[in-house]
C-alpha cells in the first residue's frame, strides 16, 4: 500500500524531528513536576489546587490523572497546534511540498497522511502524560486501590486501565483541534501562523465555553467535553460523554477536513 508507506515516511519525519521529542518531553515533565512537588510538600488539603491533587499521596496513579487534567487546557492544545499547524504549511515553508506533489504524492492522499500523522501525535501526547504520570506516581507513592468519584474503590490494574482510557478519551478530544490545525495549515505557507491560529482557536473556544452568555453555543464547542473525561472515573463508567465527545470531534473532523480538502486540492503551490 503506497498510502501506508507514505504514512510510514510521514511518521519517520515527524518522530525524527527534535521538536517532536522536545514537546513530548515537556509533556512528560508535567506529571514529574506535580508528583515531586506533592512528595516534597506536606499533605495537600482536599479542594485546593487542581482536582485529584490531594489523592496523589494516597495513590500514585492519580499523578497521571492530575497531570492530564493540568495539561488539557493549554499544554496539550499547544503541542497539537504545533504539529497540526505544521502539517501542510511546514512543508510549504520548507519548499518540500512541491517535491512531494511532483512525486506525485497526490493532494488528497497527502492530506490524509498528514492528518493521520497529526492524529498519531495526538494519541502519543496524552499517553505520554498518562504513562509517565503512572510511572513517577508509582515510584514516589504507594499504589493500591483507587477511589473513584463515586466513592467506590477499584484495584490498581483496573485503575491503570481507566488511566489509559482517559488518555484515549483525550486523544479523541484532540481530533477536532487537529482537523482545525490541518485546515489552518492549508491557508498559509508560514507554519508559525498556522500553529498560532490553531492554539488561539483552542483558547477562544475554552473562553467561550466559560461564558454563560454563550450557553447556546457551548454544546457546539470542540473543547466543551474535554474535561468530561472525569466520567471515566465514575462507577459504573458513564460512556455517554465518550460517545458524545467522539461524535462532536467527528463533526469537527468532517467540517474542517472537508474545508482542508477543498482548500488544499484547489490551491496553487507557489512556495
Amino acid at each position: 500500500m503506497p498510502g501506508l508507506r507514505l504514512l510510514g515516511s510521514e511518521l519517520g519525519v515527524l518522530f525524527r524531528r527534535r521538536r517532536t521529542w522536545a514537546m513530548l518531553l515537556a509533556l512528560a515533565a508535567i506529571p514529574v513536576l506535580i508528583a515531586v512537588a506533592v512528595r516534597l510538600s506536606s499533605a495537600v488539603p482536599p479542594g485546593r489546587g487542581p482536582a485529584f491533587l490531594d489523592r496523589i499521596s494516597q495513590n500514585g496513579l492519580f499523578a497521571g490523572v492530575t497531570a492530564m487534567l493540568v495539561a488539557v487546557p493549554l499544554f496539550l492544545p499547544l503541542t497539537i497546534g504545533v504539529v497540526a499547524g505544521d502539517t501542510v504549511a511546514g512543508e510549504a515553508g520548507l519548499g518540500t511540498l512541491r517535491y512531494l506533489l511532483a512525486a506525485p504524492a497526490g493532494r488528497g492522499r497527502l492530506l490524509v497522511v498528514k492528518f493521520a500523522g497529526a492524529v498519531v501525535f495526538a494519541v502519543a501526547a496524552p499517553f505520554t502524560v498518562a504513562l509517565v504520570g503512572a510511572g513517577i506516581g508509582a515510584a514516589l507513592f504507594p499504589v493500591g486501590p483507587v477511589t473513584l468519584l463515586s466513592g467506590d474503590s477499584i484495584g490498581a490494574a483496573e485503575a491503570l486501565a481507566r488511566l489509559l482510557l482517559i488518555a484515549a478519551y483525550l486523544a479523541v478530544s484532540l481530533v477536532g483541534l487537529s482537523a482545525i490545525g490541518l485546515f489552518m495549515s492549508t491557508l498559509t505557507d508560514v507554519p508559525v501562523g498556522a500553529m498560532a491560529a490553531t492554539v488561539v482557536f483552542a483558547v477562544v473556544s475554552q473562553v467561550a465555553d466559560a461564558l454563560p452568555q454563550l450557553e447556546w453555543l457551548h454544546p457546539w464547542l470542540f473543547t466543551h467535553r474535554w474535561l468530561d473525561f472525569a466520567d471515566l472515573l465514575r462507577q459504573p463508567i458513564v460512556w455517554d460523554s465518550f460517545a458524545a465527545n467522539a461524535l462532536l470531534q467527528g463533526g469537527y473532523l468532517a467540517v474542517f477536513g472537508a474545508l482542508a480538502y477543498a482548500r488544499f486540492t484547489t490551491k496553487d503551490v507557489l512556495s
Binding site: P46, G47, A51, F52, D54, R55, L69, T147, L149, S150, G151, L227, D228, A230, D231, R234, V238
Partner: peptide
C-alpha cells in the same frame, strides 16, 4: 449527581444510608 470533575452520591441500601461528596472526599 454528576458534577464536573466531581460527584455527589446518595446511596440507600436496606437501612443503610450513605452520602458521599467526592469534592472534599
Amino acid at each position: 449527581v454528576l458534577d464536573r470533575l466531581a460527584e455527589r452520591d446518595v446511596i440507600r441500601h436496606g437501612d443503610q444510608l450513605w452520602f458521599y461528596n467526592s469534592k472534599d472526599n
